[in-house]
Amino acid sequence: MTEQTDHSRRNFLYVAAGGLGAVAGGAAAIPFLGSMLPAADTLAAATTEFDVSTVVEGQLVVIVWQGKPVFITNRSDEMLTRLDGHDDNLKDVNSEAIEAVQAEWMDTPEKRKTRSINPRYLVVVASCTHLGCIPLYKPSAGRAEWGDSVPSDWVGGWHCPCHGSFYDLSARVINGSPAPHNLHVMPYKFISDSVVLIG
């Protein structure tokens, strides 16, 4: 009998059965992995409204949008002048590196610099683009207030305590930081003179 075994036919059946078994096994993994992805209620994109006029000049507030912290700062004229003069020291001066750091309304060099619709109010995602800590707000220039936690030529901005990333007052990342990108911007618009709708 054995001499009559059709080996090529048998091998074909082995491969076919084994291959289909593997496909079925792979398919069975889909619902398991799928169940681990964000659930529908987590996904339901919530929007958040916030009245920016409640932020005192020079101050920062942190609000929550979709479970993520968001920075809103009110920058004085003096602070806005400190956005100039250190372009050489920034990784991505004009926020062009990736999509998440720019927005449609960034259509003028001025807006690329202030990274905001109304230059006074900066609205950005508060997660350090390195590994997601919330950077500390250190708005004044120099080391007077911050000691050597900031570089000697500090222009004011954010310092991430986790691995020492620095951002300027437009949340643009400063050279030498482990963070690769500027803080992300999220979609938002002004629905009245002072109220923003985030999301």
Binding site: L37, P38, T42, Q66, G67, K68, S127, G132
Partner: peptide, 12 residues
Amino acid sequence: QLLMGGFSVGDP
């Protein structure tokens, strides 16, 4: 997302 079950560390 598989690890967090959302966009940040939370209840899931």
